[in-house]
C-alpha cells in the first residue's frame, strides 16, 4: 500500500506544480514507483511541466465519470518506466468531481504505486477539498513573502481540520542576496510562525523556469541548485537525514586566496 501526499499552498504561483513535478521525478529517480495526480481541473499544468501534454487521451474526470478505466487514463512518463501522470480535465471545473470520488481513485492508485503525489489547485474551495480528500500526508509550499506565509498558515489550519496532522513545509524561491540583506523573510522566521517541520528549502533558480518551459523536470539536471534541493527533499521523504542546503555561494578562488593571507 502506497502513500498519498498532497502538495498545497493556498496562494497561487508559489510553485506547487513545479514542486509536485520535481518531487515525483526525484522519487522516480530513487527507483520508486510514482504516480502524480493533477487535481487542478480547468487549469491543468502538471502535464505541461512534465512535457506530457500531447499524450493525454483520458483524464481524471473521465475516470470518475466512468468513461474509461483508471489504467487507461494513466500516462507513462517518457523518461522513467515507473513514473505516471493522471492528468486533470481542462474543459470542466472543480465541481466536476467530488472529494469522495477523488478519495476512491487515490485509494485505487495507492494499491499499485509506492507514492501518489497530488498536485492541489490554489485556493481553499472545492478544488482544495477534492485534492486533500484522499491524502495521507501533506506538504505545504510557501515562498518568503508575507502573503504566501499568511495563506500557508490558513491552509495548515484547514489541513488539520481535515485530519491531516503534521504537514511538512517547503520554502521555495529563496534569494540568497535578499535574505542576507534582510529584505526577505528568513527561513527561521517563517518556520517559527508556521510551527511545522521544515522538509526543505529551494533556492530561486532561473533554470527552473527554463525547464518548465521545455517540459523537462528540473531534477533531471545534476548541476542546478534547485535540482539538488528537490533531490534532497525526495531523500528526506524516503526517510534519509540530509542536512539543509547551504545557501551561500561556493567561495571563489580569490576569496580562498585572500583567506589564506588573512585578508578575507
Amino acid at each position: 500500500m502506497g502513500e498519498a501526499i498532497v502538495i498545497t499552498s493556498g496562494k497561487g504561483g508559489v510553485g506547487k506544480t513545479t514542486t509536485s513535478a520535481n518531487i515525483g521525478t526525484a522519487l522516480a529517480l530513487q527507483g520508486k514507483k510514482v504516480v502524480m495526480v493533477d487535481t487542478d481541473i480547468g487549469l491543468r499544468n502538471l502535464d505541461v511541466v512534465m512535457g506530457l501534454e500531447n499524450r493525454i487521451i483520458y483524464d481524471l474526470i473521465d475516470v470518475s465519470d466512468g468513461r474509461c478505466r483508471l489504467a487507461q487514463a494513466l500516462i507513462k512518463d517518457k523518461r522513467f518506466e515507473e513514473l505516471y501522470l493522471l492528468p486533470a480535465a481542462q474543459t470542466k471545473d472543480k465541481d466536476a468531481i467530488t472529494p469522495e470520488k477523488v478519495k476512491k481513485i487515490v485509494g485505487e492508485l495507492k494499491k499499485d504505486f509506492e507514492f501518489v503525489i497530488i498536485d492541489c489547485p490554489a485556493g481553499i474551495e472545492q478544488g482544495f477539498k477534492n485534492a486533500v480528500a484522499g491524502a495521507d500526508k501533506a506538504i505545504v509550499v510557501t515562498t518568503p513573502e508575507n502573503a504566501a506565509v499568511r495563506d500557508a498558515d490558513r491552509v495548515i489550519g484547514l489541513l488539520e481540520n481535515n485530519g491531516l496532522r503534521g504537514p511538512k513545509l517547503i520554502i521555495n524561491r529563496i534569494r540568497q542576496k535578499m535574505l542576507k540583506s534582510g529584505e526577505m523573510l528568513g527561513v527561521d522566521e517563517i518556520v517559527s510562525v508556521l510551527a511545522i517541520d521544515l522538509l526543505g528549502i529551494v533556492p530561486d533558480d532561473e533554470y527552473v523556469i527554463k525547464c518548465a518551459n521545455t517540459g523537462e523536470p528540473t531534477v533531471m539536471s545534476p548541476n542546478s541548485r534547485a535540482s539538488i534541493a528537490y533531490r534532497n527533499i525526495a531523500r528526506r521523504i524516503l526517510g534519509d537525514t540530509v542536512p539543509l542546503m547551504r545557501l551561500e555561494d561556493k567561495p571563489g578562488l580569490m576569496t580562498k586566496v585572500k583567506k589564506i593571507f588573512g585578508l578575507g
Binding site: N146, R150, D151, D153, R154, G157, V193, L194, A195
Partner: peptide, 25 residues
Amino acid sequence: GIVRSGQTLHCEGNVLFLGDVNPGG
C-alpha cells in the same frame, strides 16, 4: 495550541493562552 490565519478562538472570562496567535487569527 496555535490560532492560525482564519481561525478565531473566543473565551469567556480571563484567558491564559499557551501558544501563538498568527497573523490573520
